[in-house]
Amino acid sequence: MKVHRIGGIVVAFALAMPVAAPAADFQDVLDTPAMASPLAAKGLINGLALAGQRIVAVGQRGHIAYSDDQGKSWRQARVAVSSDLVAVSFPTPQRGWAVGHDGVVLASSDAGATWSKQLDGRNVGAMMVEYYKAQSGAESAKWVTEAERFAAQGAENPFLDVWFADDKTGFVVGAFNLILRTTDGGKRWEPWLDRTDNPQALHLYGIRAAGGDVFVTGEQGLVMRLDSAAGRFVAIPTPYKGSYFGVTGTRDAVIVYGLRGNAFRSTDGGANWHKIETGLQEGLTSGVAVGQRDVFLASQAGRLLVSHDDGEHFAPVKLERATPASAIVPLGADAIVVAGARGVRVQPLR
Rank of each mutant, 00 (worst) to 15 (best):
V162N: 03
L349E: 01
D25L: 11
L39W: 02
M128S: 07
P239H: 14
R345A: 12
D197E: 11
G231Y: 11
L44N: 07
G137L: 13
I45L: 12
D69P: 10
A14F: 08
T169A: 15
P316N: 13
Y131P: 04
F26I: 08
W163N: 04
G283A: 14
S109C: 05
G279K: 13
A322T: 07
A14K: 11
G343N: 09
L178A: 07
R188C: 03
R251L: 13
F90K: 05
A98S: 12
E320D: 12
P191K: 01
D68G: 10
G137D: 09
Y131R: 04
R61C: 06
L180V: 13
G249Y: 06
A49V: 07
Q347R: 01
K72R: 15
W273P: 00
G261F: 02
N46F: 01
Q220H: 13
A36I: 11
R54Y: 00
R293C: 02
I179M: 15
P93N: 10
G170N: 06
S37R: 01
K133F: 01
L297F: 02
T267M: 02
V129L: 02
T196K: 07
V254D: 08
N46Y: 05
D31I: 02
A301P: 05
G221L: 05
V173N: 02
R95I: 11
S299A: 09
P158W: 09
L280N: 08
T285D: 02
G96I: 09
G311R: 05
P38A: 01
P158T: 01
S83E: 06
G59Q: 08
L30D: 09
S286D: 10
K142L: 14
G206D: 03
Y244V: 03
A152S: 11
D334R: 04
P33I: 02
R78D: 12
L180W: 09
S109E: 15
S286K: 02
A21V: 13
S299L: 02
G291L: 09
V338M: 08
T238R: 07
M1T: 11
A126D: 10
P239Y: 12
L180G: 12
T182D: 08
N46Q: 09
W189Q: 04
G52A: 14
I276L: 00
A341M: 15
D310R: 11
R265V: 00
A77C: 05
A175T: 09
K42Y: 10
F215E: 01
